[in-house]
Structures are given as C-alpha cells and as structure tokens.
Amino acid sequence: GAVRDALACTFERWDGSGLPAGARGDQLPIEMRVVHLAEVAEVHLRRGGPDAAVAMAEARSGSQFDPAVVAAFTAAAPEIFDGLLDGDVWTAALDQAPDRDRTLTEPELDELLTAIGDFADLKCPFAIGHSRGVAGLAAEAARRAGLSEADTRLVRRAGLVHDLGRMGVPNSIWEKPGPLSEAERERVRLHPYLTGRILRRVRGLEDVAAVAAAHHERLDGSGYPLGAGGAALTPCARLLAAADVYHALREPRPHRPA
C-alpha cells in the first residue's frame, strides 16, 4: 500500500506544479521525493558526470526537488556515485532478489503483470487504468471468439503489459495537445518495440512479449513498428490491437476528447 501511494505522486513536484493533484511539499511521501531526485540525477550522471548531476540538483532545489533531499544528496555525492555506473544493473538486481531461485506460480505471475501494467500507466495521467481495461476487453473478446483457455490467458497477460514501452518515450510527446512532428511520431512508433525488448529479457514471457509488441501492427501492414500484416499477425495479436485502439478511443487524450 505504501508503494502504491508513493507511485501515485510520480509526476508531482515539490513546489506543487506537478500532476495530477498538484500535491506539494510534505504532502509527497519522502520515498518519492528521493526517487524524484534519483531518477533525474542518474541521467545527468551518465551524460555529464558527477558535477553535472550535483549542479542540476542544486538548480532545481525548491522547485522540482525537496531542498532537504538535495542537501543530503550533494553532501554525500562522492559516496553515492562511487561505482554506481560499474557493472550491469539488471544482473545486480537479479542477484539481490530474495526469490531469484523460485519460479512464480500462475496466479503470482498474473499479479506481477497487473502491477507492471499499473506502473506503466502511471507514465501518463490520462492512461490510468488503460492496461487493465485493454486486458479485460481482449480476454473477453478471445473467449467469445472461441480461442483456447491458454490463448485467452496469453492475450490477457499481453494486454496488461502492452504499453510498458511507453516508459521510453518522453511525456512531452505523450501529453502534447497538438499534432506531432515527424521526429515525435518516430519516437511514438518505437514504444511497442521497447515493450518487446523489456519483456523478452524475462525467461518464460517470450509469447507474451511477441503479442504485446504487436499491439500497433495492422492487418493491412500499415501499423508499426514492423509493418507486419496478414498471416504474420496471430489471432491473439489481432484481438489485442483491436482492444487497445477501442479502449484508447473511449479515453480523453491531450489532443482530443474521448
């Protein structure tokens, strides 16, 4: 519950200028105040080094970030940065997982994928609940279409995580109220590919990854990112694509009403 409450403040800011509630100051959980700074500082560390990360934090103290968190960060920056970019983060995280030697049960996997989908939806305030809704529509359509129980489960799981790749596209694009430039459209067209890239790193999710990554492909080959069509698209992929666009059209977006 505490993690859920903190994640609800992902796009809030210390000075109250964030989204969706305009929460400010001590209204933001301290855990998320730390994450707000860590998320941006990590990018500046990789791109410009420790001095760039510290300068960014100090420049945004009191606006985007909690001044107390910034002070603690800058005071301990050398210790925090030491060895941070060495090695592979993915491998390090797996090595520290307490349950890394245990395979999830089917219900546990469903619970995990639901949580991942909810997290992906937090990327954009207007997308809250989108992944669950798409998964429910796609699964019911699969059942009514006579697909097997295994395929129905597959399309539901793919629906839960189909938009995970949204995390790799800036919010300035997702929340733009007007037409996208060609460069911005190309960034959007990458997000299903990123979904597949993320999910394929998890053994056992290969089938889920394949269906989820195809949710913007179209039967006539006009979709993206691969332009696949016809026989290249499985019934599960076709159902997920239809459920996604149907659900999206019923949601308000920055450039149009529902």
Rank of each mutant, 00 (worst) to 15 (best):
R187A: 12
L109N: 08
V34L: 13
A68S: 04
L113C: 02
P20C: 07
R189K: 15
D101R: 08
E217Q: 05
G223Q: 07
A53L: 05
G129L: 06
L85H: 00
G223C: 08
S63R: 11
A92R: 09
A127Y: 01
V155I: 11
E149A: 14
T103R: 12
H215S: 12
A135G: 07
A21T: 09
A41S: 10
D66P: 03
T234M: 04
E12N: 05
A139I: 01
S17C: 11
P78R: 03
D51E: 14
A158S: 12
R201K: 12
P177H: 10
L104M: 09
D82I: 00
A228L: 14
A237K: 00
S61F: 07
H215K: 04
H216T: 12
P20S: 12
V89W: 02
T195G: 10
D207H: 12
P98G: 10
K123S: 15
V208F: 04
R33E: 10
R256C: 12
G87P: 06
V245H: 04
T74Q: 13
Q96C: 11
V245W: 00
H216A: 15
C236P: 00
R238L: 09
A142T: 02
T234R: 02
A248H: 01
S172E: 14
G62Y: 01
A93E: 10
Y246I: 12
A258G: 15
V69A: 07
R132S: 05
P252V: 01
R166I: 07
K123Y: 03
E251L: 15
Y224F: 14
Q27E: 15
L249C: 10
P254G: 11
T103G: 02
G221T: 05
V35L: 12
L19W: 10
A92Q: 05
D66I: 05
R201H: 08
I80A: 13
R253Q: 15
L194C: 04
F81L: 03
F73T: 05
P235T: 01
P225V: 06
S181Q: 07
F11W: 15
L180C: 07
L109T: 15
L249A: 15
Y246R: 09
A57F: 07
W90A: 13
V3S: 11
L147D: 08
G230F: 03
V202N: 02
P192I: 11
L147C: 07
I173R: 08
V188N: 00
A142Q: 02
L45E: 08
S131C: 15
A241Q: 01
A213I: 00
F11E: 13
A183G: 07
L7V: 12
A72R: 09
R218N: 04
V155L: 08
H44P: 01
P98D: 06
E140N: 10
A68L: 06
A241P: 00
F73Y: 14
R143L: 08
G129T: 09
E186I: 01
G227S: 03
E42H: 13
G178C: 05
V169R: 11
R253L: 14
L84T: 09
V134E: 11
P254F: 09
